[in-house]
Simulated assay, not measured.
Amino acid sequence: MEQKKITVLGIGGTGCRIVGILRENPLSAPLRLLAIDSDSAGLERSGLPEEARLLAGARWRAGRGCGGSVLDGQRVVAHERSRIEKLLEGVPFLLVIGGLGGGTASGGMPVVLSVARKLEIPTLFFVSLPFTLEGHSKRKIAEDTVKEELLGLADAVICLPNDLLFSVLESTTPLSNAFKLADQELSRTVLALTMVLLHGNLLAADFGNFITLLRRKKSFCSIGVGVASGEIDGENRGEAAMERLLHSPLLGGADKLGEADAVIFTLLGGPELSLGETKQLLELAGRQVKPETRLIVGAATGEEWAGKLMLSAVTVRFDAESEASELLRSSSERAPKRTRSAAAHAADADQLILPLEPISKGVMERGPQVKWGNDDLDVPTFKRRNITIDNGKRGVEQ
C-alpha cells in the first residue's frame, strides 16, 4: 500500500481519544485520521481539523452526546450516512476503533460497517470492551454489538477487554490513569499494525492474513507493546523490548502468549534494523508461544524510527463455540458433492429393508373379516394395491 492510504476512523468517546493520541505522534503521519461522535466536546478534544471531524446528529442532539443509548447512537450516525460515504470514498483500507458499551460507538459502528461494505472497503474493527465495574448492562451491549452486528459482516474484528488492566496494575491505580494506559496501548498497537500494512519492507503482513484468521470468529484478544532504543538499552534493546511487551498492561500477563491460539507479531525499527536482528527478535517472541499456535508476522523500517524499535503482539484465543462452527463450515465446503446415483450406491450397504411380507393369522384365519368398503384391512396395503417395494437398488442398477 502507498502512504496516506490507510484511514483510521475513531468513533465515540474512546475512538476520538485514540485518534487524538495518534495525531500527536509524528510517526502516524502516513495515516489519514477521522473522528465521528455525537458529543461535540469529545470531537474537539481529538484535535483533528474540522474537515476530519463529523458531529453526528447535530440538529437533534445539539452536540450533547447520546447518553449511553445505543438506539440514539444508531439514529444519529445513520442520519449522517451520506456524509460518511463522502468521507470514505476512495479509501482502500479502513481501520475503525472505539470503545463498546456506550451509545455512539455501539450504535454507530454497524452503520459505518454498512457504508464500508457498500463501498467495498476492506475493514478491520479494533474495539475495547468495558470494565466489569462499569456494570453488566454496558458489558452486554458491547458483547451483543460484536456478536450480532459486527462478526457476521466485518472482514476482521479484534476485541480487547479493558479488564486485562487489572492483572498487572495496582488496585490503588486511579481509574483515569487506567483509561489513559488503555488508550495509549491501543494507539500504539494501531500504529504498529497500520505501519506494517503500509510498508512491511522487511516482512509484509497482508490484510488477507488478518481476514483469514479473524473473520466471523468470536475471539478474546490482548495486546502487548514493548519500546526500546539503542541509546537507553544498548545492544540488548531487543531483549528490553520483549521484556516490556511481556509486562504490558493490556497483555494480561506473560502467560497470555503461551495460551493463545494465534498471535500477530509486528516489529518496527529504524534503518539500522538488520534482517539478522529482526530474525533474532521474532525468534525470541516465537519461543513464548505453543508450537501449534498460528503466527502472523510483519516487520518494517523507517527513518522516523531511527535508533528505536517497537515490538507488539496481539494474542487471539478463539471461543470454543466459534471454532466448532468454523470447523463444521469448512468441512461442509471441502466435502465433495455427490450425484444422486452415487449417493444411492453409497447407501446400499447400510440401507435397511423392512420385512413387508404377509403374515398368517393362525387360528384367527376363519374369523370375521375386517373391511372398509371393499378392502379387507387384514391384507397389507401393498398387497391389496399390488405395490412393488423399491429398496433403492433398482434405480442404481439402471
Rank of each mutant, 00 (worst) to 15 (best):
A324Q: 11
D233N: 14
E259S: 14
A254D: 09
A262F: 01
L311T: 08
Q351Y: 11
E304P: 00
G269S: 03
T278E: 12
G226Q: 01
R329M: 04
S330D: 13
G208Q: 13
L275R: 11
F207R: 10
L309M: 13
A262E: 00
T293S: 06
H247E: 09
K218C: 06
G230V: 02
S325M: 10
L251V: 02
L267T: 05
A347E: 11
S325G: 08
F207Y: 15
R294S: 12
G253L: 04
E326W: 15
T339I: 01
L268E: 00
L267C: 07
R329F: 08
L213W: 07
S332F: 06
E333I: 12
N236E: 14
H345R: 15
S229A: 12
G208H: 08
A335F: 14
R294K: 15
R244C: 06
K217I: 00
L295W: 01
A343K: 10
N236G: 15
S219E: 09
V263S: 13
L267A: 08
D233R: 05
T278Y: 05
S274N: 03
L311C: 09
N209C: 09
R340N: 07
I232W: 10
I296T: 10
L251E: 04
E272W: 00
L327W: 14
P291Y: 09
L268D: 01
G302P: 00
H247A: 11
A344R: 14
G276H: 15
R287I: 01
